Amino acid sequence: MQGGYEVYERFEIIGGIRYDLSPSPKFVHQKIIANLYLSLHNTCHQNGEILFAPMDVHFDEDNLAQPDLLFIANEHRGILRDGFVYGAPDLCAEVLSSSTGRKDKTVKKDMFQRFGVKEYWLIDPTYRTVDQFVLVDGQYQLAATLSESDVLTSPVLTCISIDLSAIFPPENAAEA
């Protein structure tokens, strides 16, 4: 306990290596995740569960992640057990930051691919783009790099249709 409140450690384990998840995300990161959640909820809430970090996703004893946002289709709800996720979500999304971007683009992407996450989005708040990776024959293929003027749809999750202009906050919000 610190200063009258309990402090929880946030971390991920990828390939048996522990990665600390501090500092906490900045305003723009959280705003993008909130907007993305709302957009997904508008089109997909009847098709599955939409969750956001912190939410542990257990792949195995050496691989535990906390994706910024994840989607589990109704037909895969069985991976939700005991209040956690045990297995591959259908979609994971990460908002890039200076402290996590490298890991999100490399080791985390490789882990999601290895465990069969069907779709992975890398959201870049600086360039206001989304790289959409889709699993094809066990390998991620870059399906699209989209800008805020595009609509993101999914070849895998047909309920998804997101106007990306609604995801990114005003550019001056970066200072908040």
Results as ranks from 00 to 15, higher is better:
G87D: 09
P67Y: 02
N42I: 00
N63I: 12
D62G: 15
A65T: 12
G101F: 03
G87W: 07
D56Y: 02
F59Y: 14
L38A: 00
K103V: 08
G101R: 01
Y86D: 01
A73K: 13
D60F: 06
S98P: 12
G83E: 08
P67D: 03
H76V: 08
N47G: 14
D104G: 12
G101S: 04
L38S: 00
G87H: 12
H45R: 15
V85E: 04
G101L: 00
L51M: 10
D104E: 15
V57H: 04
H76T: 14
H58G: 01
A73D: 05
K105D: 06
E49K: 14
N42R: 08
R77C: 01
E94G: 01
A53D: 05
I79Y: 09
L51Q: 00
E75A: 11
H45F: 13
C92I: 13
T100H: 01
T106L: 09
K105R: 15
L80E: 10
L70T: 05
E94K: 00
F52V: 12
T100F: 01
A88L: 11
F59G: 07
T43P: 02
E75N: 15
T100V: 06
A93T: 02
K105Q: 15
G48D: 05
E61D: 15
L70E: 02
I50S: 05
F71H: 03
S39F: 00
H76C: 11
F52Y: 11
C44D: 05
T100G: 02
M55L: 14
E61P: 13
F59S: 09
V85I: 15
R77Y: 06
H41Q: 10
T106K: 07
K103W: 02
L51A: 08
L51S: 04
D82L: 11
L64Y: 11
I50A: 09
Q66N: 11
N47E: 14
S39V: 03
G83M: 12
L70Q: 08
L40A: 10
L70I: 05
T43K: 10
F52Q: 06
F52K: 08
F71P: 04
A73I: 11
N47F: 06
F52D: 00
L70S: 09
I79F: 07
L40F: 15
A53P: 10
A65L: 12
T43S: 08
L70M: 14
T106P: 02
A73L: 15
Q66W: 04
T100S: 11
G78M: 05
I50E: 03
G83Q: 09
L80V: 14
C44N: 04
I72E: 01
A88H: 07
R77H: 11
H41R: 14
D90G: 13
H58N: 14
D68N: 13
G78R: 09
A65S: 12
E61F: 07
S98W: 00
F71I: 07
L80Y: 07
V95E: 05
L96H: 00
D56H: 04
E75M: 07
L51G: 03
L69N: 06
I50P: 02
S39M: 05
N42F: 05
N63F: 09
F84H: 15
N74K: 12
P54Q: 08
E61N: 13
P89D: 09
R102N: 06
T100Q: 01
